[in-house]
Amino acid sequence: MNQYPSYIYEPAKSIEVFEASEKYLNTNPLLKEKITNLGWCYQSIGKSIPQTMENFWSGHFFPFVESSEELQISFNLVMFGLYKQAFMSLRSALEVGMLSVYYNINDDGHKIVKDWLNSKDAWEANTPRSDKIWKILKKNKNIENFDLKLNLKERFEDLSYLHNFVHTKGYKYSNKLGLMKPNYQTFEETIFLKWLDAYEKVVIIVATLHMLKYPIASIEYEWDDKVGIDNPFPVLEPYEIDRIKEILPFSYFREIQTIASVDPDTQELLEHIKNLPDMTEKEKEQQIVDFDKSMIENGQGFIEWEKQELKWLEKMSDEAKEKVIRRIDSIREWAIENNMMKPKIERLKEEEFFDKNFD
């Protein structure tokens, strides 16, 4: 029974579509894996954007974060059968993802992003049109040369139809998506696959632009030999690059690596990292212990942390298991001595922290 009789697009219908979408992906595991890998790929690309003392918390990273969230929202919308809105979010993700490179093209995004970031009521603070974005992007030689060779902008223009969903260009770009679609939410395989195709293309374009701006993101190197798990550099781990290779066309990644091999900034940073002394195993282990203690102290507490660690043990080699078990035993002693067994919120309640008067 419709609980909201004045509405055709009611929440219950979306729940039905979600269940149908879940069933579809569970019976098509390769599609489910593809969606998952696209999400991981996009998250990894965010690591290529430098975070320095000068730009930290400046807002230069906001366009990428917003783009990433739009992609996640688009996925939610498509799973619930709100297809038009899912395509609209893809359009926004593409546009704002490109702004991430646009504002940082001269490495001064922490300064020039301010008016736009603060939604200033001025023409200059408006989100720029795509032609202006591309004009600025092509001032970067890596992007310009790549586009001349592999037509990246043409791939972008292939997605120009997403604009039609934003402005509802007739029946085809309306809420009536689907050949025999009634006037409420239904699962539509054809539309779902069209969305996935567009989603992949958005990820390819934005990821490629970031890797051209920051080519060191394509360098395959065992960074943890130099910095352990606490990596301050805008680089990607080998497994992250492997994921990106699966998403980007072969010619794209090969060209990006060629560019990286001669890019002065990339080579300078790479040499700097290579010249760092190798970390000892003891130093790496201490990094892990310090990180785990921080997670325990400021979040879940030892008991929940240990449960998660023991789950991961099942996938480890015997040698790795012994190492982790020793680490758990050591951290348990620390947690008992420092009252870190329970989650932080529970510890604060026991200490009557929330009852204190801070006036």
Rank of each mutant, 00 (worst) to 15 (best):
R91A: 03
P182L: 02
F291E: 08
D318V: 07
N145A: 11
L31V: 05
S68R: 14
L177V: 04
W134H: 02
N37W: 04
E350N: 11
E95T: 12
S119G: 13
S100Q: 05
F291A: 14
L25R: 10
Y184E: 10
F233R: 01
V65I: 12
E281M: 07
Y239N: 13
N145V: 01
K274M: 04
L77V: 08
E157A: 08
I216M: 15
K344V: 09
S6F: 14
A125C: 07
P232D: 07
L82H: 15
S74H: 00
K132P: 00
I204R: 12
E322A: 09
K342E: 12
G170L: 01
M53A: 12
T266W: 05
E314Y: 06
E19L: 03
R332D: 12
N2G: 06
E283S: 06
K321H: 00
L162Y: 05
F187Q: 05
N298I: 01
N151S: 12
Q257G: 05
Q257L: 03
F291H: 13
E309C: 11
F233K: 00
M1H: 02
D131A: 09
K344A: 11
D224S: 13
K138N: 05
I143V: 04
T186W: 04
A125S: 12
K111L: 15
Y252A: 03
M79K: 07
Q286S: 06
Y9C: 04
I296F: 00
E337N: 00
K153N: 04
D290S: 13
L30A: 15
T190Q: 14
F61A: 05
N338L: 03
Y4V: 06
P5E: 15
F253L: 09
I296A: 03
Q300A: 07
I45C: 03
S92G: 08
L117F: 13
D131R: 14
R327C: 02
E314I: 05
N151G: 01
F146A: 00
L193W: 04
K135L: 07
K282M: 08
P238F: 05
Y171E: 12
P238H: 05
E189A: 05
S89T: 05
S294R: 10
K132Y: 06
W305V: 14
L270N: 10
F233D: 10
S160P: 00
K181L: 00
V206F: 07
N118Y: 15
D107M: 09
F165Q: 01
G81K: 01
Y171P: 01
K34H: 15
Y83G: 03
M211T: 01
D108R: 07
K349L: 14
V101D: 08
K132I: 10
M279Q: 13
E322K: 11
A122I: 12
S68H: 09
W334D: 03
T186R: 07
E285W: 02
L269K: 14
N106A: 13
Y102V: 03
E10R: 15
K282W: 06
K356P: 02
I259C: 04
N151E: 14
R332T: 06
E22R: 15
K344R: 12
S160E: 10
K349N: 08
K84A: 01
F253N: 01
V262H: 13
K34Q: 09
I205L: 14
H210D: 02
N28R: 11
N106T: 13
N339L: 09
N106K: 14
K226A: 06
I219G: 06
P343Q: 02
S74C: 01
S58T: 07
S261E: 12
T168S: 01
Q257F: 02
M295P: 14
W223F: 09
Y252W: 11
P182M: 01
K213Q: 11
